[in-house]
Design a protein around this nucleic acid. Structure first.
Lengths: 307, 307
DNA sequence: GAAGATTGAAACCTCAATCTTT
DNA sequence: AAAGATTGAGGTTTCAATCTTC
């Protein structure tokens, strides 16, 4: 961790300088023609086609009230058109008019020219380095932010319906809905009660009261006393790719060690490719055949890890 | 140029996304404790120690009036101290108080933690890629911006004193002040008049009425009719490293071709290393001995280029 | 009650005019 | 006149309260 910390300061410094320069870039965008926020709305509409005001606010990081006023002004000068949604009369769909598209084109041309002038000062390999660096950092910040909006905690009694819904929602997605899958375990509807037993642990990923992921540890049924099973680790689609699988894995393995287990077993499906990658990354070794007696005879892939 | 243009769109996209994520990062900086601008002032003061309000405004891209009010508020709550400069009673020197340093530390800790969380999601080589990419882009934008604040145009009559000052200022810097150097040419004080002759051209780099660089073309004295000499190309220190040498070179060589010359000769000093690099980059070939009869017998380095 | 949108009040920033010192 | 700083007016954004529709 120490070495990581040493990289933070230079990165923040570089980031500040870049933002500063981007500020200058923007300051000469379209001198005094309109506020930047208005240009940004046009840019966003050009990129997405049609958006309602809430969506615009989220994308531009502006208050809905600001958006409301900006849209009114842009509408007054004929750069955007606002049409009421027919299905839902609460929402207003905003899109560019012809004039708006023309104006947007000018903004684009101008910005392109300036960015191009800067790029021309770099070697080709430096240019790709810049793009790669910016994309990587944006993605890392994004994942980090989303990770923090979701929290992991031990399961509670009121989570039972949420966890049951999660399991029933995710397993069929990978074709794991027939007999011989964990989907039909009686514990699915009483996860809290099941995992309150000794040497059991279950954790959930939650956000604003919703259960969006889960995973747990239990003694391997019909197996050695020192072997635990990593069980029922599932995530809703919107959670995937955020690195939360790793966090959940860390949490579960820590709990397993805490409970005195020496090895961790798991069984899964080859079709769950993302999960397979996570297991490999954490040092799980593939087995030729299952351990214990879990009753999940439809699984086709088994792993073991020394804790 | 076409291939360069194709890189602009992805870069702008990546840049927008990164700025958006940095916005989120900042939005959780210190929730609702104070406006970002106030935090930024503390950050900048922490970085630079002491600054006056003008300098703060430039660095943070804020109006001097905004800075004035922000400083008053920060001073009221005891985070910064304002002391009047003794030499110049117009300026107020702003610095952090003890309380300000403590607050800054908290801001830093918080930001470091968040950036570190994002960095932890990347591989070590990706981390250095991010830093390198950001630094490169910031530097390119900076150079591009500064290039645009300086303009190149043909010399005018009122430029004579400025150009003379430029030459007398720059040449001694490289030890080119004795006899046998262009510094003692009679033309130094009448550059406009000299370069108004036929087959002559001289250009200046100017900014806000100041002459900060120059360079020109003239027939090689005592040489072939088709050979011109690249003469008196000098830049003030603050201009160097911005790529303006290349721009001036382009301008002069274009003028030389326009005037019908077929080759371009120049003589210089080995100690002018930055200039030597520029000549090499533009295809100038080193010569073993001088051409023509320029009278600059103290030069030790000669180049020729086919136009 | 919740979600999308609007409006008044207050905070923030910019622009232009002004003051003080050089 | 020029540079650093301040002040008043006006535009922009946020916060909180409100309206309408689901």
């Amino acid at each position: 961790m120490q070495s990581l910390f040493q990289e933070v300061a230079p990165l923040r410094q570089a980031s500040r300088e870049m933002v500063r320069e981007l500020g200058f870039l923007q300051a000469i965008y379209l001198p005094a023609e309109m506020p930047y926020s208005h240009s940004h709305v046009l840019l966003e509409l050009g990129h997405c086609g049609v958006l309602n005001q809430n969506e615009l606010g989220e994308r531009l990081q502006l208050e809905k009230s600001s958006i409301s006023r900006i849209i009114r002004q842009l509408s007054d000068i004929g750069l955007v058109q606002v049409i009421m949604d027919l299905q839902d009369k609460r929402v207003k769909q905003v899109s560019l008019t012809e004039a708006g598209q023309k104006r947007l084109q000018r903004i684009h041309d101008d910005a392109n020219q300036r960015v191009q002038a800067a790029l021309a000062l770099l070697q080709p390999e430096q240019r790709s380095q810049v793009v790669a660096g910016l994309e990587l950092y944006a993605r890392a910040l994004n994942r980090s932010r989303l990770q923090n909006t979701y929290a992991i905690r031990p399961i509670q009694a009121q989570d039972n319906p949420g966890v049951a819904h999660l399991i029933r929602r995710v397993m069929p997605e990978f074709g794991a809905s027939g007999p011989g899958f964990a989907l039909h375990d009686p514990e699915v509807d009483q996860m809290f009660d099941t995992y309150s037993q000794s040497r059991h642990a279950y954790f959930v990923v939650h956000h604003q009261g919703l259960i969006l992921g889960g995973g747990g540890i239990a003694p391997l049924s019909g197996g050695d006393h020192e072997i635990c099973e990593l069980r029922k680790m599932y995530f809703m689609p919107e959670l995937r790719g955020l690195g939360l699988g790793q966090k959940m894995m860390d949490t579960c393995l820590a709990a397993a060690r805490q409970l005195g287990f020496k090895q961790c077993y798991l069984e899964t499906l080859k079709t769950m490719t993302q999960a397979q990658g996570l297991y490999a990354k954490n040092g799980f070794q593939p087995l030729a055949k299952p351990l214990g007696n879990t009753g999940h005879f439809s699984c086709d892939s088994w792993f073991l890890l020394s804790l």
